[in-house]
Design a protein around this nucleic acid. Sequence first.
DNA 1: GAGTTTGAAACT
DNA 2: CAGTTTCAAACTC
Length: 769
Amino acid sequence: MDTPDRPRAAATNAAAAGFEDSPVFNFINNLSPIPPPKPQASAHNVQLFKSSDLAPVSSIFASPHVNPAKESKLVVRDDPVQLPQDSNSPNSVRTRLGTAIRLIKSKNIVSENCSFTCHLSQAPIDSSINTSISTSNLPQPIQFVGGSAECDKNQNAGGDKDLSTDQECPVEGVFFDHTGIDKMDSSQPGRIVHENQLCEQSRDGFVAYDEDYLATEELNSDMLRLAPPFDAETQLMNGTLNADNAHSGTLLTDGSSGSYINNAAHDPHLYWDGAVDGSAMDYTPQLLPGVCQNQLVSNDQLCNALTEPSNHMPMDQSALSQHMRGTRRRCLFNEKAGAVNKAAKKTSDRHSANTTTPRCKTSSSDHNSKPMKTPPCALPGIGLHLNALATIPKDKIVPYAAQSSTIQASNFPSAVSSSPATSEPNTANEDSSQAIVVANADESGQGSPKKKRHKFDNGDGTSCKRCSCKKSKCLKLYCECFHAGVFCSEPCSCQGCLNKPSNMETVLSTREQIESRNPLAFAPKVIRTSEPGQELGSNKTPASARHKRGCNCKKSSCLKKYCECFQGGVGCSISCRCEGCKNAFGRREGVVLLSIEQAKQGSVENIACVKEETSENDNQLVIYQAANPASAENVLTTPSVEDIRPLSALPPSSSKRPRSSTKLIGHSSRLCNSQAPLKTDILLSPFESYAEMVLGDGASDVLKGGSSPQTSVKVVSPNKKRISPPRIGTGLSPICKNGRKLILKSIPSFPSLCGDVNKVDPKTSSPAS
DNA sequence: GAGTTTGAAACT
DNA sequence: CAGTTTCAAACTC
């Protein structure tokens, strides 16, 4: 391979020389699908995506949220960006990750390390690899943030031995810049895993890119299309947008786990990725986590193979990567549904899909320019990303749009969903994941009439959308496509649709208006609140997830898809105002109330508040013992997010929620103990607040929990799954104990490279801890 | 496929 | 902020 040149150089420098010399290596090189590119050509490609090109954009994207610190970090990354010709894929990956992380940081400055580390610690790493992650590793986060880190990591991970890896990940190598490896503790296993993953991703992406690029035009186009959106994000973070991103998008598809969900999410369909304002917060995390996890798993393997010196073969990559990719893609799609079950089928399908490229079939008329590329299904994740991206000014976006007519059209592999592999649909609900899955479904489904197709939804509504709007012109939230941030496409049966690339400005402006009214309007409907791993692993129910606003069902008993909570596969929460809730995923009914009442009645000093979590899966009983009534209340408040739900029933909060998210926060805090309120209030950043919203009171509670441990002792139910207070400390994140941590979690899904540890665990292995 | 039901979104 | 209307999905037949 041509590209190998660089790697080679690196390799030569390192120890790889031997490797290169190997006949196999040579053979591979010769075989490499990638045409020995004219340097220029490659360069050209690269440039398209390069951050430098995008730079302006990035600046644009720079969200207020972003912290200077981030920026600085980003800056670092930028440099690297330039490099890689081939880098496309790999870089993109990195950037994304880095970006995601950065975003998190920016939002949660305080907790940056924590959040990040948490991910890491949790990170999938563990599962696949024995490696225990040391949460302590602050550097890691940094590294990731650094962006380039990935490769670096790889190097590190690989350790010196991995020089080969460097080769393998030439692009990354390019990036090397940094702090890199050296700084990193190569020793840490956790890291290694990530690194590997990263490498793989990059590699895969790399390879994938090649493949896609070479093999399937569609993919390429898609990727290209995708690129812009990503770019925006990445730019925000790094300023390095790369074609890579696009690649990554493809990669995502590849990833069994959807490692790339991030990208994918962004990509695809979301024309307006960035549109959402910072307030929107990052939804991405949600998606990502799952994805990451998955990725991790799959990646690990891949990584291992790759990382291993023997395996390295940069060249092999093509073969391996392709192979791997195939699997990954499958996974991604499969995941979506949470359809663990389906996965197998899909995998097979995926193959076909690969050729075709997974997409929602939507081809908008507009998109016709690219017949194949139909607008992407809305990725569930996408929504998240969009939100995350939100910072991007429309203006900027518009340009894309203009371009995008082509771009947008692109269908991105919806990649994504990270649904927790966990298999259960419930879990699947996780925002993005499902959506992604849907996309695939769409393909199959498209054939089917619109009727049933509807959304393949995630709860988020992120899934591939197909609307049938008649009066809204697809410019209102009524329109699922619009709501999901995707253009209407062929499958849609809408009338008078203005949600088309050709009307990008209109769409954006409308979107903006809506966001101005409700910053969370485009946020995923279902947000994963707690760490996925914990709950998911334990339960089927996505206890961690909840509907951002809660439902208001009165007749459906939250047992039908009319209920957004149900639809999203999440239990009802405090924020819900439903009546007669029978949500299979968890009710918000009133155990809490009882406990409260009891407490108030003063009947108790030692009141055991028993919460029965309705979540079907669990039937968990959580018993809180309060020393006194007051404590009882506390208990109510303190419980983990999950617990919170039922508790949430508290009238005040439940009564009505302000439309604006922020208000909700206030409620929650109030509900919570008087003890901590200030703390939460004070601390809450918009973002946090958002988290709270998502979490519901829980977040605040959690925070409080830290402060008010006293309140309760909890006994675990037979199932023992939840012990709220303890959880706070442990569950949420051992590492970060303060409330902030929770916040981070809420964010979680950030594409933590690691992915959620939790999620990873469920299927593959036991949780790291 | 048409009609009804439902609840979110939008409006007042 | 509360109530009403509009809307489109979900559902039923």
